[in-house]
């Protein structure tokens, strides 16, 4: 049966705003999650990290991606497409974490096979709650591809 001990996984946050990075890191800490949170700040770095190449050859395999749509080098939606079209990466769940509430962003994200779409909450307690629920859902409830 499934283990009662919550497992620890490697999560990749793709986000270029240092404030948001810090808030997410703090929220993970506050929620007492034991997961490893890695951070990259561009679309290029995200692909390199996921494919364990360039300076990321020694990095672990990522099991969940938190992806911002506004990145310095390329549109987050294109990064999403690259992940979902790559045979080795397409099964990794990608959760969009963005400040955009625009319908077209939401629709395009799901069209490109995003696994969930979350808007960044405005206050810190809200972010802590989101991080807790992310952990609860993706790491405890969901059976991920082996």
């Amino acid at each position: 049966m499934s283990s009662s001990q919550p497992k620890s996984i490697d999560i990749l946050l793709v986000e270029d705003n240092p404030g948001d990075i810090r808030l997410v890191q703090k929220a993970f800490k506050k929620a007492r999650l034991r997961n490893e949170l890695h951070v990259v700040e561009s679309g290029q770095e995200a692909m390199d990290f996921l494919l364990q190449r360039a300076e990321f050859t020694d990095m672990p395999r990522v099991e969940l991606v938190l992806l911002d749509l506004k990145l310095p080098d390329r549109n987050g939606l294109d990064v999403l497409s690259d992940i979902k079209e790559h045979p080795d990466l397409k099964r990794i769940p990608v959760v969009i974490l963005t400040s955009s509430e625009a319908d077209e962003d939401i629709i395009t994200s799901y069209d490109r096979h995003a696994n969930a779409y979350l808007t960044k909450p405005v206050d810190f307690p809200g972010l802590v709650k989101i991080v807790q629920e992310l952990d609860e859902f993706w790491l405890s409830l969901v059976k991920l591809a082996p």
Binding site: N17, G19, D20, K30, V122, F124, L127
Partner: peptide, 20 residues
């Protein structure tokens, strides 16, 4: 209103963190 959300979230986010 889209672009204003971003800096505002920094204000509220870190105020919350400060309080926390």
């Amino acid at each position: 209103s889209h672009d204003l959300q971003e800096p505002l979230r920094m204000v509220t986010g870190f105020l919350g963190l400060l309080q926390d």
